[in-house]
Design a binder for these strands. Structure first.
Length: 209
DNA sequence: AGGACGATTAACT
DNA sequence: GTTAATCGTCCTG
């Protein structure tokens, strides 16, 4: 089996809303140190677009923390928040224009046994939130700025098949509690119906929210 | 040097 | 529905 094609630089060098929609159904893959793949299909994304977007970190200006937002497309923007959580974004558009797509949810695919977290109890939801994704795929500041297009990348994407518009829903972005309108409710969140994707084997609870 | 706050999560009532 | 956890980052002084 040849490796599935990876999105090219040009894939990310487009309008952020286009990229956010196109990322749905792609597989996000992390290679552990021993080469084991830990991955999931992207089912939820959010767009953060430019300095005018008051929900976007770029709105408060360039800092060391958010520098990668202004960087070249196809690189990771990883940041730390709430004193304990990492967030994984992919930079879009042209270098010099700050924009990115936040990866909000995955459907677990490979290496699920490595996604288990210390704190268990009940039925674990391993990749149903942006911080859970980072914990499951071991994403932290080491990967801030990583180029997802490099053949030698530790984390990368693999293209999925296209999905009809009827399988995708949109809505307001999550967690922008102190952000004014229209940015607070502008429908820049995208979700793919997980039933469009292969069923995870051996983890029947994986589809549950 | 100190304080406010966050693109969240889990565990509560 | 509410709230504690927990600390890097940014801003003020």
């Amino acid at each position: 089996m040849p490796a599935p094609p990876r999105p090219s630089r040009a894939f990310f060098t487009r309008r952020t809303l286009v990229v956010a929609r196109a990322l749905l159904g792609c597989r996000l893959v992390h290679s552990d140190r021993d080469g084991t793949r830990v991955s999931g299909w992207i089912i939820e994304t959010e767009a953060y677009i430019g300095p005018e977007d008051e929900g976007c970190h770029a709105h408060s200006g360039y800092t060391q923390r958010n520098a990668n937002l202004w960087g070249p497309p196809g690189h990771a923007y990883v940041y730390f928040t709430y004193g304990m959580h990492w967030m994984f974004n992919i930079v879009t558009e042209r270098a010099g224009f700050p924009a990115a797509v936040l990866i909000r949810a995955l459907l677990p695919s490979e290496g699920v046994e490595r996604m288990r977290r210390r704190r268990g109890g009940g039925r674990p939801d391993l990749t149903g939130g942006p911080a859970k994704i980072c914990q499951a795929l071991r994403i932290d500041r080491r990967l801030n700025g990583a180029d997802l297009c490099l053949p030698s990348a530790e984390i990368w994407l693999e293209r999925g098949r296209p999905f009809p518009p009827s399988t995708v829903t949109t809505g307001p972005r999550v967690g922008l509690n102190n952000v004014p309108e229209p940015w607070k409710t502008i429908p820049w969140r995208f979700r793919l119906d997980p039933r469009e994707l292969p069923a995870p084997r051996g983890i029947p609870w994986a589809r549950d929210p």
